[in-house]
Amino acid sequence: MFVYITVMLLALVGIYALLLKENLIKKIIGLAIFSNSIHLFLISLGYRKGGIAAIMQKANVGYFSLAAVDPLPQAMVLTSIVINLSVTAVALSLAIHTYRKFGTLDSKKIRGLNG
């Protein structure tokens, strides 16, 4: 239960940094924190009390399927980490180009489009 509360606290910290901070780099860090909190949530859904890792070895073949943790969320998190890495890469390159064009990284000063 405390694991889930920690995950939700991390998600709130991530969203706070994403929405309420003004510097673009801080927003991108907030995005990374938020997405990593969801990965932590996914992995912790598959835990089993007294579980072992989902890798078969000669020593634990007998009781493997009764003691191993859930492998499916871990596969989902592997894919999602790569996807969030790509989004962070594109966002950071946009931040570099923003600095070239606007001279500042303050999100309040980047307001050219109207309406």
């Binding site: 969203i15 994403l18 673009l24 927003k27 995005l31 938020f34 997405s35 969801i38 996914l42 999602s80 996807i83 969030n84 989004v87 594109v90 966002a91 946009l94 931040a95 180009h97 923003t98 064009k101 606007f102 999100s107 980047i110 307001r111 050219g112 489009l113």
Partner: peptide, 22 residues
């Protein structure tokens, strides 16, 4: 300038939506 501003807003909002889907 306009493209970079629009892209920055789109990427921030879009990644929140993606994380909410996950």
């Amino acid at each position: 300038r306009d493209s970079i501003e629009a892209a920055m807003k789109y990427i921030i909002m879009g990644s929140i939506a993606t994380s909410i889907i996950l």
